[in-house]
Structure formats: structure tokens, C-alpha cells
């Protein structure tokens, strides 16, 4: 079994001194939720429109990533503070309530700022993580999904036969099958553009540089510094997500700076690439196969009728 054998190592320069691993650092603390990334991605990749669906999820009407949405901007309204930001719309403090549950004191009812509650509106643009250990890629039986020379994970539209295996394999709910087309689709990290020395369409459009594209090592360094700055400025909720090469997917090629727990953004808190357990799965499967063989064999012992 060759599972432990890594594919062309995504963390290192490709064979023959290929390009360094490229990725995204999406710093959600400067996102203005404009969704330019969503649209720019659709325009570039000529993705079908995803249908009109008023979700009531704050300003998010895309819902999540899928075959026809490769960038998705999440909107989260919280009764929580952001650094030393003052919003004037927080409700007076009391035991924590979920949003949507009305509380009947008006902001400003109590005197003084100190008694007013907090509020913040988080926005975050999600995308395929281009995992170092990518489950989608691992399980793809056709080789449609493959690792490019930039260390990114790409579906090949001329290969995919729509087996659908990658869909439940992805621990982040990224890749999905397109209705009517049958194939699986997701962010390619603009593989076609990278080849021509261009930046991905989404990061190029982003008005505030919330999406930063570049050499992954450099981005990780920048992110560490950024985290330090935010913590110093009192934004203690800032944390990095996916930048750690020791996490369950061995680090992601697209990582994030978040202001709350990942699950609040619809991200898994501690994803593990499913194929990490595959050797063990095969072992158990082997044992089960032998059990079956033995069981059937045993069935032939004993009385003939």
C-alpha cells in the first residue's frame, strides 16, 4: 500500500525547481462583505448562476460553497465586541441571548456606554482550502482531481466522471456536483491564470485586500505578524485557521484570519483528512475479509445437511 508515500510534495517547490506553493491568506478582519470575490470568480470561470434564494441569513444569500459558488461570503451578526469598536446598537447586557431572540431594552436605555451591549458584524470570504493533505484529491478515482505545480488542488473538467466521491470526502464542504452537468466543481485557484502569471480573479478584485494571494510561506509569515498586531490592538478574538502545517490536513493552501471559532463561520473546528485513517481502514477491512473467508470456510464444516 502506497498511501504513506506523499504525492509530489505540495509544500516544496515542484520538481525541477518549479514554482513555490501558492495560496491565499484571507484576512476577514478587513473584509467589507462586498462579494466582489464571489462575482469575479463567477465571471472568470463562467460559473452558472446559482438561483434566487432569500435565506434570511443576514446578507448572505449564497448559503455556502458549492459547485456554482466557489467563493462564499459569510455574514455573522453577534452580540460581542470587536476590539475597542463602539457600535451604539448593542443591546444592554444580560445573560447571553441568541440573535433573533428579542430583548426589550433599547440601546441607550441605560446610561453610559459601559452598560450598553456589544455588537459586531463579521464577514468572511470562504474558499477551497487547497489542503496539503486533500481528501477530495486522495479519493478521486479518475485522477480528475490532482495537485498542480503550485501545490494547489484542481478538478479537471475533461476527466471528472461525476462519481461524487470527492463531495463527502471534503471535510470543509467545498467541492460539489453541478446539477445537470454531473461533474464536480470547485475553486481551481485560477490555475489557468496562474499559468499566465496572473493573480486569481477573486483576490484581484477584492477592494480591501482581504484576500491576499501569494507565496504561501510569505503569507504565513504575514499572517503571524497580523495576528500579533490585532492581539496588541485588543482584538483578542483574532485567530488563524488552517495555517498550521501540523493540523489535521497538514495545513491549508488557503488559510484565514478569523474573529471567532471556525464553526461560527461554518468551518469545521478541527478537520482531519479522512485518508489519514485509510491504512487503518484497510487493515480492518483486511481483517474483515479474512473473517469472511474464515466464516464461509467454517460454514463448510459440520453436518453436510
Amino acid at each position: 500500500m502506497a498511501i504513506d508515500e506523499q504525492p509530489a510534495d505540495p509544500t516544496a517547490a515542484g520538481p525541477g525547481g518549479g514554482p513555490p506553493r501558492m495560496g491565499f491568506f484571507t484576512d476577514t478582519s478587513v473584509c467589507i462583505g462586498c462579494k466582489a470575490c464571489e462575482v469575479a470568480c463567477k465571471e472568470w470561470n463562467m460559473i452558472p448562476e446559482d438561483g434566487l434564494d432569500f435565506t434570511g441569513m443576514s446578507f448572505d444569500n449564497s448559503g455556502g460553497l458549492g459547485a456554482d459558488t466557489w467563493r462564499h461570503v459569510a455574514f455573522i451578526e453577534q452580540r460581542a465586541p470587536l476590539g475597542f469598536q463602539e457600535t451604539g446598537v448593542g443591546r444592554p447586557e444580560r445573560e447571553p441571548v441568541d440573535l433573533g431572540m428579542p430583548s426589550f431594552e433599547r440601546p441607550g436605555d441605560s446610561t453610559g456606554a459601559d452598560e450598553r451591549g456589544d455588537f459586531r458584524w463579521l464577514m468572511s470570504s470562504d474558499v477551497c482550502k487547497h489542503c496539503t493533505s486533500a481528501a477530495c484529491l486522495d479519493v478521486c478515482p479518475t485522477g480528475s482531481l490532482f495537485r498542480t505545480e503550485y501545490g494547489t488542488v484542481v478538478v479537471q473538467e475533461d476527466i471528472c466522471n461525476g462519481c461524487g466521491y470527492c463531495v463527502p470526502a471534503c471535510p470543509y464542504g467545498v467541492i460539489d456536483q453541478r446539477k445537470g452537468d454531473g461533474r464536480a466543481w470547485k475553486c481551481t485557484l485560477c490555475y489557468d491564470r496562474l499559468g499566465d502569471g496572473l493573480e486569481p480573479a477573486c483576490s484581484k478584485a477584492c477592494p480591501t485586500d482581504s484576500i491576499q494571494f501569494g507565496d504561501l510561506d510569505e503569507l504565513r509569515q504575514r499572517a503571524d505578524e497580523r495576528l500579533g498586531t490585532l492581539h496588541e490592538a485588543g482584538v483578542s478574538s483574532a485567530r488563524l485557521y488552517g495555517e498550521d502545517p501540523d493540523d489535521g490536513v497538514d495545513g491549508t493552501g488557503a488559510f484565514f484570519l478569523l474573529l471567532d471559532e471556525p464553526e461560527v463561520y461554518g468551518l469545521p473546528p478541527d478537520p482531519v483528512v479522512t485518508t489519514r485513517d485509510l491504512p487503518s481502514m484497510w487493515t480492518y477491512a483486511g481483517a474483515a475479509a479474512l473473517t469472511l473467508l474464515a466464516g464461509v470456510g467454517a460454514a463448510f464444516f459440520g453436518r453436510r445437511r
Binding site: 478582519s29 476590539g83 475597542f84 469598536q85 480591501t208 498586531t229 490585532l230 485588543g234 482584538v235
Partner: peptide, 9 residues
């Protein structure tokens, strides 16, 4: 601009 910090005013 990407170094902006909200709430540091």
C-alpha cells in the same frame, strides 16, 4: 490598507 485594525480608534 490591509493592515487596518477596526476598533483601535
Amino acid at each position: 490598507g490591509r493592515e487596518a485594525v477596526t476598533g483601535s480608534a
